[in-house]
Design a protein around this nucleic acid. Structure first.
Lengths: 115, 115
DNA sequence: CACCGTTATATTCCTGCGTATATATCGATA
DNA sequence: TATCGATATATACGCAGGAATATAACGGTG
């Protein structure tokens, strides 16, 4: 079938993942939904897992990537900070650049696969 | 501490990984040791796991990536085929190119991390 | 000041991955 | 032809990661 290639960039600190594809996608889901709960649902993961990922990101970066609020009319919500947006943009740009520069070799590799 | 960034390119076929960082490293270990058994030890994994990885690669590529022999003076051994060598080289070249083109952005991202 | 939906957090359970282990087979060489 | 080390394969066990579940706290708004 169609071999799908994907880059997975990870930046690791002390044997734990600072940022990777899953965390970036989660951040993007928070941007578009406005809450961790809804983002978790979109991503198909439990709220707990989503919260743990968000929490670890906030701890690993100098500046938090999200700003979570409890209470309020709609119970609260979570917004991605300017710093978080920069992380997303930078990560996606790296991905796009890497994919572009390697397109030829990736195709070569894919062609070696059985159909 | 020192944030270490790593690219992990995967080429996926039907939701299973055709080639990725672990399999490439295993192939390289087979090149340098001449057997699955020794390569598994070097990689710190069980023989079973190593054999399963090798087996899946041989099945997914049009041409086998290794040639395994049983019996003989030293019990046999496994050599990486020309096709396997091409897979390794192509994969490593993609990695190097991607890392090079993204060096600046990766540094930017790393700097956002806490020390 | 009661309501509501979200964040925050703990506990329990389950499942899949990998290890460990055991066994059969192979075949060049001494 | 007996030996020896590697391949090939099956079974059972352990464990970490994630899901499911439960509960408390929060704070605008009506």
């Amino acid at each position: 079938m169609k071999p799908r290639s994907q880059f997975r960039l990870r930046i690791t600190k002390d044997a734990e993942i600072a940022i990777g594809p899953g965390k970036v996608a989660l951040l993007e889901a928070i941007v578009s939904t406005g809450s961790i709960t809804a983002a978790a649902k979109v991503m198909g993961m439990s709220y707990r897992r989503a919260w743990l990922l968000v929490d670890s990101m906030n701890k690993m970066f100098k500046t938090p990537v999200v700003d979570a609020a409890t209470g309020g009319r709609h119970g609260g919500g979570t917004v991605v900070t300017a710093n978080g947006m920069q992380v997303i943009e930078c990560y996606r740009r790296i991905e796009a650049d890497a994919l572009k520069i390697s397109a030829r070799d990736i195709k070569t590799l894919s062609r070696l696969l059985r159909d």
